[in-house]
Design a protein around this nucleic acid. Structure first.
Length: 929
RNA sequence: GCCCCCGUAGCCCAACCGGCAGAGGCAGCGGACUCAAAAUCCGUCCAGUGUCAGUUCGACUCUGACCGGGGGCACCA
């Protein structure tokens, strides 16, 4: 661009450069005036004045401040929440919207390992970059409420919540968590017997501790865990992929017995499932949680084996008469007890082979294998002796680790029975023409004694009643959900507020000893191993900080030596409760002040109905957290609720999953990615430097050479244009491809709107005080009504389209004369949630000396929404043949008469009588001949 | 293999409870301005809704089957 050409651009045209100046100025104004400060009812963030009853808490999923910075996909949700927040703020609600950082985590630690730079330094640098980038977008955050999980003041309370959980047990009778002291009281007064029957007072304090530890919601377990040598840490089930690898880094994961912290999330299985019904969440996410918790109803049945018993779990107790053998998981404890000597060698070999198989092998190879134990069990229904096998298609970790095999009704059992030549007895009559193997459908029971003729449902309940009466078993509910593995062998996480005495008994630190700060160390890395080295032992970095791990404390027994916990909490801990801290980030006596918590997060039955669980009013984020974060967070909230610490039992009332912005990437002949912005399209083919390249569609990423950053968009178009474009690409929940060339459409719109209000050459206002004609007012009020509806329902794309439509009308009607003020002001206000900076600028130019952030927002006037006449299309046999205009007040008969009187229609009907005439009021007329 | 979501113009997307397929944007085309080009402005072309059936006076919308794309689960008894 030559300097001459630049000089021709009118001085007051809304260019990227002018937009940039306006944006910086308003960002400064908002900051200086605390425009987005949301007052709390009480405490340091209250103004002393009463707060409006009408509040709104909008939250984005906690970002992790990665070193790569943002690409244009990241802010989609952030802008979405901002538009929503701004719209509601303008409509008079007290809106809490802020953003902090989920700042503990692996990348900073890995970077620290490579460079020796402290993870805190890396993380803080990244946060600074991140804040600069989001500030440039004009997000209306209450900056006083920014928090970061690595702040000592924050993780002090994360540790405090851990102690709350540790100091609780789940009272199944009451259906809720209670303080462990209440359990201790029950033991002490004898209302609950101790495990071995001795009086409580007769136990040593170490023994008492051991007993209580069995009940705690946070407990140490020696159970098999997911050990990932490649990462040097253990992982939660949720962090392991279906093919037995780590979600992060894709390393193999092995089952190992290790002493680790667990959270008793399984105690909440039913509530976590049932309360989903009270949440305004996408069905998809609810389904994923239900599936993950995996509740199934069935029965436990005991099969006698000599003087022993094998207990199995089945969802099909109705098929008991068809159980022709029993299978134990290879690891099952009874195997050694019941197996005969002759089989011992085969069993040992099979078990060895099974233990060497990775999860992946087990899944890939679905051929059924197993070994006979030599033992026989008795089928309690038939009294028959049936063989007992071990086989690795039965998993130790689910149910009782043992099954009754009913090959007639279960395909897996059928496969095994076929391979080992075991008998098959059908107990459900297959449907007519069934030619499959196992029949899993419904049908009348056969070969089943007293069940014969019953359908599956009736047979199930009848069998359960019979089992319970005879003492062979009982109905039960089984879950897939397991307890949450809660420790990691990492440096960059929250230390546990726990020390161990000389016996290795965990002892909680008292509240006044919090926070337990992370020590400085020389080496941030856990020892990692060959990814395949299943026998390696975790060696956390904190174990080497000996002057920290070994402490002398007075915990009520005088000064004694204790050892700290070497582990840190998983990344999820900090994000389990951050909505509570956003509410009261500066409260120092409590994790959140109760009154503030109730105001922002408490249930509001008047507004949301009787079952309202409370929680954040709108929570936006990606669907990738459907099971991990969202399940953990709900669990913590419920524990805190049970303990009376918070007023609502769900953290997020309404959840919305935004779609992803995706992008095209291009590979040349050597499958190397080439810079996407230098690829040109010709006749549907793509070329880079004249060479044809292959196009693929997917993520945006550095290695794919297709990253577009919000910074360059703001630089080239301005933040308002960028926001406008992102919001108009489609509905919030749909993924779509990024197209930089389309951004100019949003820019043109803002430019036109600006030009309708401001003289591009002089900068003077081009607004007239004349009244607007009725036609314009009708369109205006229709737009206002539509835009309200769109903003409330997160349909920003259609809200934007309506504003463009109105602006196009204004351009056409008033570009010669100047825009009537009533139109100009309404347009600016309606634009404000989407393009806040330019709207503020225009609002000020229109003579207002206060920011429009708190309104007003235009209200639609009903009288312009009702039309006095309506145009009806007239269909004949479903095809539009003519149009008539009738008064809006016309009744159906009048419309019908007018339609039949219409010239073309009269011709088509031609004297005959229509079979039927359908008049849809306000819509159309259809004449059926 | 099972479950869920989505297929509308060259592209991104509208169409509310079954009622005129098009609101908006990009690209294209024509024009205005310009010595010319860019920018800007004005105008305009373009699909019958993935396919096949069904229900209906009427289907993008409801039902069934199939095709294509995306996601979740996957030896959970």
């Amino acid at each position: 661009m030559s300097t001459e050409a630049a000089a021709e651009t009118p001085a007051f045209r809304y260019t990227a450069e002018l937009a940039g100046r306006i944006e910086k100025r308003w960002q400064q104004y908002w900051e200086d005036n605390g425009t987005f400060h949301a007052p709390n009812p009480v405490g340091p963030l209250s103004t002393g004045e009463p707060v409006p009853a009408d509040k709104l808490f909008v939250q984005d999923m906690f970002p992790y401040p990665s070193g790569a910075g943002l690409h244009v996909g990241h802010p989609l949700g952030f802008i979405g929440t901002d538009v929503f927040a701004r719209y509601h703020r303008m409509n008079g609600r007290n809106v809490l919207h802020t953003m902090g950082f989920d700042a503990f985590g692996l990348p900073a630690e890995q970077y620290a390992v490579q460079t020796g730079q402290h993870p805190r330094k890396t993380t803080e640098d990244n946060m600074a970059t991140y804040l600069r980038q989001i500030r440039r977008l004009g997000l209306g955050h209450d900056e006083r409420r920014r928090i970061s999980t690595i702040d000592v003041e924050y993780y002090k309370w994360t540790q405090w919540i851990f102690l709350q959980i540790f100091n609780s047990w789940y009272d199944a009778d009451a259906g809720k968590a209670r303080p462990i002291a209440e359990l201790e009281a029950q033991f002490a007064d004898g209302s609950r017997p101790t495990p071995d029957g001795r009086p409580w007072a007769g136990l040593t304090s170490a023994e008492q501790r051991k007993v209580l530890n069995e009940y705690r919601l946070a407990y140490l377990s020696e159970a098999p865990v997911n050990w990932c040598p490649g990462l040097g840490t253990v992982l939660a089930n949720e962090e392991v992929t279906a093919d037995g690898r780590s979600e992060r880094g894709n390393f193999p994961v092995f089952r190992r017995n290790l002493r680790q912290w667990m959270m008793r999330i399984t105690a909440y299985s039913d509530r976590l499932i049932d309360d989903l019904d009270r949440l305004d969440w996408p069905e998809k996410v609810k389904a994923m949680q239900r599936n993950w918790i995996g509740r199934s109803n069935g029965a436990r049945v005991r099969f006698p084996v000599g003087d022993q018993e094998i207990e199995v779990f089945t969802t099909r107790p109705d098929t008991l008469f068809g159980a022709t053998y029993v299978v134990l998981a290879p690891e099952h404890a009874l195997v050694d007890v019941i197996a005969t000597a002759e089989q011992a060698a085969d069993i040992a070999a099979y078990r060895r082979a099974a233990s060497l198989k990775s999860e992946l092998d087990r899944q890939e190879n679905k051929e059924k294998t197993g070994v006979f134990t030599g033992a026989h069990a008795t089928n309690p229904a038939t009294g028959e002796r049936i063989p007992v096998y071990i086989a690795d298609y039965v998993l130790m970790g689910y149910g009782t680790g043992a099954i009754m095999a009913v090959p007639g009704q279960d395909q897996r059992d059928w496969d095994f029975a076929t391979a080992y030549d075991l008998p098959v007895i059908r107990t459900v009559q297959p449907s007519e023409g069934f030619d499959g193997e196992a029949f899993t459908g419904d049908g009348p029971a056969i070969n089943s004694g007293f069940l014969d003729g019953m359908g599956v449902t009736e047979a199930k309940s009848t069998m359960i009643a019979w089992l319970e009466e005879k003492g062979f078993g009982q109905g039960t509910v089984q879950y897939k959900l397991r307890d949450w593995l809660f420790s990691r062998q990492r440096y960059w996480g929250e230390p546990f507020p726990i020390v161990y005495d000389e016996d290795g008994t965990p002892i909680p630190l008292p509240e006044e000893m919090l926070p337990v700060e992370l020590p400085e160390v020389d080496d941030y890395s856990p020892r990692t191993f060959e990814p395949e080295d299943a026998n390696s032992e975790p060696s956390p970095p904190l174990s080497r900080a000996t002057d920290w791990t070994e402490v002398e404390l007075d915990l009520g027994e005088g000064r004694k030596k204790y050892r700290r916990d070497f582990n840190t909490m998983p990344n999820w801990a900090g994000s389990c409760w951050y909505q509570l801290r956003y509410v009261d980030p500066t409260e120092s006596d409590r994790f959140v002040n109760a009154e503030n918590e109730q105001y922002w997060l408490g249930p509001r039955t008047a507004e949301h109905g009787a079952g309202d669980p409370g929680g954040v009013d709108l929570y936006i984020g990606g669907v990738e957290h459907a099971v991990l974060h969202l399940l953990y967070s709900r669990f913590w909230q419920k524990v805190l609720f049970d303990l009376g610490q918070v007023s609502g039992d769900e953290p997020y009332r309404k959840l919305f999953n935004q779609g992803y912005i995706q992008a095209y990437a291009f590979q040349d002949a050597r499958e190397t990615y080439v810079p996407a912005d230098e690829v040109v399209e010709e006749n549907g083919k793509f070329f880079f430097n004249g060479e044809e390249v292959k196009r693929e569609y997917g993520k945006m990423g550095k290695s794919l050479k297709n990253v577009v950053t919000p910074d360059e968009m703001c630089e080239n178009y301005g933040a308002d244009t960028f926001r406008m474009y992102e919001m108009s690409m489609g509905p919030m929940d749909v993924s779509r491809p990024w197209a930089t060339k389309d951004v100019v459409g949003a820019q043109r719109f803002l430019q036109r709107l600006w030009r309708n209000l401001v003289d591009e050459n002089t900068g003077e206002l081009r607004v007239v005080e004349d009244a607007a004609p009725e036609e314009s007012l009708r369109l205006l009020h229709k737009t206002i009504a539509g835009v309200h509806d769109d903003f409330v329902n997160l349909r920003y794309n259609t809200a934007g389209a309506k504003l463009i439509e109105l602006n196009n009308h204004v351009t056409k009607a008033y570009s010669a004369t100047g825009t009537p003020r009533v139109l100009a002001e309404a347009m600016v206000l309606m634009l404000a949630p989407l393009g806040p900076h330019v709207a503020e600028e225009l609002w000020a130019k229109l003579g207002h000396d206060r920011s429009l952030a708190h309104g007003p927002f235009p209200k639609a006037d009903e009288k312009y929404l009702v039309e006095d006449s309506v145009e009806y299309p007239i269909q004949v046999n479903g095809k539009v043949r003519a149009r008539i205009t009738v008064p809006a007040a016309a009744g159906q008969d009048e419309v019908k008469a007018a339609a039949l009187a219409e010239e073309k229609i009269a011709e088509l009907v031609a004297g005959g009588t229509p079979r039927k005439v359908i008049v849809v009021p306000g819509r159309l007329v259809n004449i059926v001949l």
